[in-house]
């Protein structure tokens, strides 16, 4: 799609105007000593370039708790779909998180359409922003080819001084800025290219290296299915599931009933779940199919860079670095694991 220039002042005015008109705008803001996504009252509150939020913004399209259906039992049974969403603008989303949402789009739109997700997704306008410096010391987005969005945004902003260079990803995005956008000329594209070259160099210098080639990760993980690494690292795992909760691409869920006290009305809701939790695979006979924590760590890592990578042709770890930061025992970081696998056995 096309790109435009928009003056920062005009853009912020546009957003503030929307907020005044009651539009829900969510952006990263400072909360105590952390950054988190929150509904904002003014664009003044936005943290434009980090620090990174503790949790990814996936919860705005795939809430931690979400009603799927509701029912009433009174002279017969009535069941209704709970496919609802508020129109929301997600502003200041970093590329790793845009890509996370783009991956969720794939899985929830794959046959058996998940309307509950898709409705929320359609109602969200995603306005991303390019990171020109790494937003967290743990991130490795550059190594995962995730410093720019693959898909799944309406607008993507790059700070080029007084203006934002804006890539348009959808008709809705284009309409949104139609009153304030200016055409780009060749020199703007050149300027952007320079900024990105500088960004690449900086990220290449600052972010930890991924020793194996990105496209070889599925093969590396396949060959190392039985590596002792899994048990060595697994032995230190608390099974707390934090690494699942913070991850922009983890989308496993549990489904539970919530009944009102009168027992006549109720709903079924889904809740984020995590493959690192013991009960994740427990069946009624008591059997747990991935009882060992090492086996669960392997499953988590393989989902990101082997199973889903192979299936969709794209890594399911966007390199945001949140899991590595959240893990108290420092065992889960995919880049770390992959480098160790690559380095062992006197490979190459």
């Amino acid at each position: 799609m096309k790109s435009y220039l928009v003056s920062k002042g005009d853009f912020l005015e546009l957003i503030d105007g929307m907020i005044e008109n009651g539009k829900e705008v969510v952006a990263p803001v400072k909360q105590e000593n952390q950054a988190n996504f929150k509904r904002i009252k003014s664009t003044k509150d936005i943290l434009w370039s980090g620090p990174q939020t503790v949790i990814s913004p996936k919860g705005f399209v795939f809430p931690q708790e979400e009603e799927l259906i509701e029912y009433e039992v009174e002279d017969g049974i009535w069941v209704g779909s709970k496919v609802e969403a508020k129109s929301t603008v997600l502003l200041g989303i970093h590329p790793c998180d845009i890509n996370g949402i783009a991956l969720l789009d794939k899985v929830f739109a794959e046959k058996n359409l998940d309307e509950n997700y898709l409705k929320k997704r359609e109602s969200a306008t995603i306005i991303g922003v390019e990171c020109l410096t790494p937003c967290s010391p743990e991130s490795f987005c550059y190594r995962k080819g995730s410093v720019l969005p693959w898909d799944g945004f309406d607008l993507f902003l790059t700070d080029v001084g007084d203006d934002f260079f804006v890539e348009v990803g959808s008709e809705a995005g284009k309409t949104l800025i139609s009153g304030i956008s200016r055409k780009t000329i060749q020199s703007d594209a050149k300027k952007l290219k320079k900024i990105r070259e500088k960004r690449d160099n900086l990220f290449a210098k600052k972010q930890r290296k991924l020793k194996p080639k990105l496209e070889e990760l599925p093969k590396l993980l396949k060959e190392n299915y039985d590596s002792p690494i899994w048990d060595e690292r697994g032995a230190k795992c608390f099974g707390c599931g934090s690494c699942n909760m913070v991850c922009p691409t983890c989308y496993c869920f549990d489904v539970r009933d919530c009944v009102e006290i009168n027992l006549k009305k109720g709903s079924r809701s889904r809740f984020w779940d995590g493959c690192m939790l013991t009960d994740f695979t427990r069946i009624a006979s008591g059997e747990i199919f991935r009882e060992e924590r090492g086996a669960r760590l392997r499953h988590r890592t393989n989902r990101k860079d082997f199973y889903l990578f192979e299936k969709w042709g794209r890594t399911f770890c966007t390199g945001c670095g949140r899991c590595g930061k959240a893990c108290l025992t420092k065992i889960v970081d995919p880049l770390d694991i992959e480098n160790e696998l690559y380095g062992r056995k006197g490979r190459r």
């Binding site: 899985v107 929830f108 496993c252 869920f253 549990d254 994740f280 069946i283 199919f289």
Partner: peptide, 19 residues
């Protein structure tokens, strides 16, 4: 094969055996 299942439609992840 029996596995834990929460959705039955290929989303929730509980029933996965490897890939």
């Amino acid at each position: 094969l029996e596995r834990k299942m929460k959705c039955g439609v290929g989303k929730c992840g509980h029933c996965q055996i490897n890939n």
